[in-house]
Design a protein around this nucleic acid. Structure first.
Lengths: 164, 164
DNA sequence: TGCCAAAGCTTCAAGCCCGTAGTGTTTCGG
DNA sequence: CCGAAACACTACGGGCTTGAAGCTTTGGCA
C-alpha cells in the first residue's frame, strides 16, 4: 500500500544540492516544528510586551488592512483560518478591550463589521514591530532558500484551499 | 476576493523571479496556512476513520519508536512539543482507551513510563497508512523543491530549538 | 550518615480556541 | 410573497496552555 521510496534511489536528480528526496514525514516534522516554535515565541512576546494575543493581533491587522478599516466576521474568520465561533469570541475580547467596535453594515444588514478604534490603531502600530521583527529574525536562517520555500509552500497552500 | 496583487502589474515585483527575496511576512503566512490545513485534514481523517486524535496518534507513534516501546512522560512531551500537563491528559486518555499502560520505571522510580498494549500497536498500524498517506499526498506539490524546503526548515528549527 | 535541593509527574484553575448544533435576522431568487 | 441561503450569536463539550501547588524519588554535599 505504501510505495515507500522504492523508486527514489533510481535517478540521480539534477537538483541534488541539499541531497536526495526526503520522506514526506521528515518534511512534515520540520513544518510542524517551525510553526510551533515561532508561534509560541511570537505569542508570548506579544502577551508580555503588549498584553495581546497572537490571534488578537492578527485580527487587528486584518481589520486594519481591509477597505475602510472594517471587516465582517466572516472575512476575519476566512483570513485568519478561525471558525465562526472563534472569531465571535476573539472580536468580543477586542471589543471589551476597546480596540474595536462592532457595527451593523448599512448595505447588508446581515453583516456585522468590526472597525478599529483609535486605541486599536495605536495598539497595532505598537505591536507590529515586535511581531514583524521576531518573524523576520526567526526566519533569517532560510537565507537564500526563502524564495523557493515560500513559493513551494504557496503551491501546497493553494492546492489545499478548501471549501468549508 | 482579495485584490492584493492589483498593483502587481505596475511595479516589477520582487516576487516574480524565483531568486528574489519575499517578505518574511509572506513566508510566514504560507507556513501557517500549510500547517493549519494539513493538521485539520489529518486530524479529522484520523478521528473519522480511526476514532483517534492527531495528538494521540503522534504519542502512540512516539512511544512505539522509543527503545523498548516505552517512553517517559517527559520524553513524550519533548517529542510532541506538548506541555507536561498536556501529556498527562493525553496519556490518561490513551490509557482509558486501552492503547497504553503507565508503569513506574524500575531504575529511576521518579519516572513513569508509557508502554504500548497490543491494542495500541494494532491501532497504530491501522492508522499509520491514513496519516502518512495523507501527509504524503498533501505535500506532493512541493515537487522537486522538497529537499530544499526540508533542509531550510530544518535550519530554522535547529536555530529555534529552545530550552523549556 | 543525614539532609535538602532538584527532578519527574500529577492536579487544579483560568484562559483560549475548536467543532457542532440550535436560534434569530436579513437577503434574494423563484 | 415565501422559502432557502447567508451571517452571526450562544451554548456545550473537548483539547491544549500557563502557572502554582504538592507528592515521591534521587543524588550531591557537608
Amino acid at each position: 500500500m505504501l510505495p515507500e521510496n522504492a523508486l527514489a534511489s533510481a535517478v540521480p536528480d539534477v537538483a541534488d544540492l541539499p541531497g536526495a528526496a526526503p520522506r514526506p514525514e521528515e518534511t512534515w516534522l520540520r513544518i510542524v516544528q517551525v510553526h510551533d516554535r515561532i508561534t509560541r515565541r511570537v505569542d508570548s512576546a506579544l502577551h508580555r510586551q503588549h498584553g495581546i494575543s497572537l490571534t488578537g493581533f492578527e485580527a487587528l491587522r486584518r481589520i486594519a488592512e481591509a477597505p475602510g478599516q472594517r471587516a465582517s466576521m466572516g472575512e476575519v474568520a476566512e483570513a485568519l483560518g478561525l471558525s465562526r465561533a472563534g472569531v465571535t469570541s476573539t472580536v468580543t475580547r477586542l471589543v471589551t478591550e476597546g480596540f474595536v467596535v462592532r457595527e451593523r453594515a448599512a448595505d447588508d444588514r446581515r453583516l456585522l463589521h468590526a472597525r478599529l478604534t483609535d486605541a486599536g490603531r495605536a495598539k497595532l502600530s505598537e505591536a507590529s514591530p515586535t511581531h514583524d521583527g521576531l518573524v523576520t529574525h526567526l526566519l533569517t536562517h532560510l537565507g537564500a532558500d526563502a524564495p523557493v520555500v515560500t513559493d513551494a509552500l504557496a503551491r501546497v497552500s493553494a492546492a489545499t484551499r478548501s471549501r468549508r
